[in-house]
């Protein structure tokens, strides 16, 4: 392996093979080479493989037109008939062509090994000299080396061409600004918390101890919400979960004493790790687990991280009850929701 050129002679002596190369072994014929019966058999075998493949291709066409798909698909043994039949026939016709070709090569094609000699990857000394000379001539004739003004200005021109290329990509997207710091909860005070999908507003007495509601702001269920909000992007920040615990089990921080209603607390549903929505709530332990990377938050303890890769507590939404007795937000989240980013501080 190691043969520093400076120790060339020494290496050569050591490398000398203790056993001489006996040379290529003699070619031995296969049964199909010497036995005509076996040869015929191999021939029939290969032909049969190709023929079955051809039949399989025709069956594909038959299957294509005879099995129904769509709303009421044909089903065979609990599987989609069209899909499985098409796949099996096509797969078989491909596979058998392959197996046939390999069998042909192994049994019937000439199998004498051939020796080919290698040449060093490097080009010959002469070629190299000629190429270098041509290169030198070319550069000399271009006169670039003699005219530094032309050369430098050309380099400048070419170099600055990169700037438009980069600048032209500017409109890929808007600048972040403070977009990540706000959610739609900040649009106004007392936005009702409603159940996602159904839009049901929630009264505190509707919730039992141990209950979980996957919620959204009521704004998304108002008429024309589709036009007013970029729903997907806003949902990605505003989604919440509402949980109810025994009030005496909650260890709210001093400034969060009035953020809940009778043991009902509301947290962001977006994980502070990389932003998966979380709603694996264990009602007995009050732990919330993220299914993506298993960050675990203690909702009875201000959303503190107790396990996993997340670094920050889950943001909590201060809630209260509106004039009609429904749960509603006090304000926006007091910190940005979702994954960390550089400017977050």
């Amino acid at each position: 392996m190691s043969a520093p050129t400076e120790h060339g002679a020494e290496v050569a002596a050591a490398v000398a093979d203790p056993i001489a190369d006996p040379g290529l072994s003699e070619h031995q014929p296969r049964p199909t080479d010497v036995d005509p019966a076996k040869e015929k058999r191999a021939e029939r075998q290969v032909a049969a493989l190709f023929a079955i493949s051809a039949i399989s291709s025709i069956l594909f066409v038959v299957a294509y037109f005879s099995f129904k798909i769509g709303e009421k698909p044909d089903v065979v043994m609990g599987l989609g008939a069209s899909h499985v039949a098409l796949g099996l026939t096509l797969g078989l016709s491909l596979l058998l062509i392959g197996v046939g070709a390999i069998q042909l090569a192994r049994k019937l094609m000439a199998d004498h090994e051939i020796v080919e000699y290698r040449h060093p990857a490097v080009s010959s000394e002469e070629d190299r000299e000629t190429a270098l000379a041509s290169l030198r001539d070319g550069i000399a004739e271009s006169g670039i080396a003699r005219r530094p003004l032309v050369r430098n200005s050309m380099l400048l021109g070419l170099g600055l061409l990169g700037v438009p290329v980069v600048v032209a990509l500017r409109d890929l997207g808007p600048l972040p600004g403070d977009a990540l710091e706000h959610t739609v909860w900040g649009r106004r005070k007392l936005i009702r918390l409603v159940q996602d999908v159904t839009g049901t507003p929630i009264k505190p007495e509707d919730l039992e101890i141990g209950q979980l509601v996957n919620g959204q702001p009521e704004l998304f269920f108002e008429d024309g919400a589709n036009e007013t909000y970029d729903l997907q992007s806003e949902k990605a920040k505003a989604a919440i979960i509402i949980v109810r615990m025994q009030p005496d089990e909650i260890a709210a921080a001093a400034d969060r004493k009035d953020w809940g209603v009778d043991g009902i607390l509301c947290y962001s549903k977006i994980c502070t790790h990389v932003g998966c929505p979380i709603s694996l709530w264990e009602q007995q332990t009050h732990h919330l687990l993220c299914p993506c990377h298993q960050s675990t938050f203690d909702l009875a303890d201000n959303g503190r991280v107790i396990f996993g890769p997340a670094a920050r507590a889950l943001p909590q939404l201060p809630i209260t009850v509106d004039s009609e007795g429904y749960l509603a937000s006090q304000s926006d989240f007091l910190e940005p929701v979702g994954p960390s980013y550089w400017e977050r501080g």
């Binding site: 049901t200 929630i202 919730l207 039992e208 209950q211 979980l212 009602q283």
Partner: peptide
Amino acid sequence: TGPQQMPVFSDAVLT
């Protein structure tokens, strides 16, 4: 009923 760790989904919210 919300057995074991499963949260409750009361009739008033999830009808």
